[in-house]
């Protein structure tokens, strides 16, 4: 099956700091894909490049057969790439009532996902939608993501909560210092010595 999203040799530097060096990955339609890595490993930079918030310096990003890396973010959204933000960014002035009605974090995260879904995307990038939530709340958000995936939406999950990524993803890629150090099924990832080293520094 042709990949929905192809990232080929994408690099990004901030001054002298290499945030991403020649990252390549492919995501199939309908896939549940997990992206993990320690803090500062380039996860958010990578999805910023995919969603269009940042421009990659080299390499290409192909979505549904079309090169999108020179398109503005809103044009990519209209082609079907949506994302939620790590820090929820509700549109305050438009949802005053909703903001009054939803005081808890978990509801804000759901609002954030709902806002991303309003664009009717084919690819949803969920950036740390579960950070800081309790166990039960994590289950609620996971259930929503599973339901969206059932409806045919491809999902990239970026998450620090390991048990959530492990349960959700069919395939996981681990980034460290801007490079892919490991790719595989959830079980193979946790057993990989490079991943353990990146996380534990052992």
């Amino acid at each position: 099956m042709a990949a929905l999203l192809q990232v080929k040799n994408v690099s990004k530097h901030f001054g002298g700091f290499t945030a991403l060096s020649a990252v390549s990955l492919e995501i199939a339609p309908g896939e549940r894909f997990g992206l993990i890595g320690p803090n500062g490993s380039g996860k958010t930079t990578l999805i910023n490049c995919v969603s269009g918030a940042l421009r990659n310096e080299s390499g290409s990003i192909v979505f549904d057969g079309e090169e999108v890396s020179r398109l503005a973010a809103y044009q990519r959204t209209r082609r079907g790439i949506a994302r939620s933000f790590q820090v929820p960014r509700p549109f305050h002035s438009m949802t005053v009532l909703e903001n009054l009605l939803v005081p808890t974090q978990v509801e804000l995260r759901k609002l954030e996902l709902a806002r991303a879904m309003a664009a009717r995307p084919r690819l949803l990038i969920s950036d740390e939608a579960m950070a800081g939530l309790s166990g039960g709340e994590v289950d609620e958000v996971l259930a929503i993501l599973f339901k969206l995936n059932d409806k045919g939406i491809t999902i990239i999950m970026i998450e620090h909560i390991m048990q959530a990524v492990m349960r959700f993803s069919q395939r996981i890629v681990c980034l460290d210092a801007g490079k892919i150090i490991c790719e595989g099924t959830p079980t193979s990832i946790v057993q990989n010595p490079d991943v353990q080293k990146a996380y534990l520094g052992a």
Binding site: S51, G52, A53, A72, A73, Y74, Q75, T77, R78, A82, R83, F85, R89, P90, F91, H92, S93, M94, R115, A116, A118, A119
Partner: peptide, 16 residues
Amino acid sequence: RAIRDSEEAAECSGVP
């Protein structure tokens, strides 16, 4: 109004 609240989120919701 979306721009006023968050330009990044507006852009990623398809607002030019």
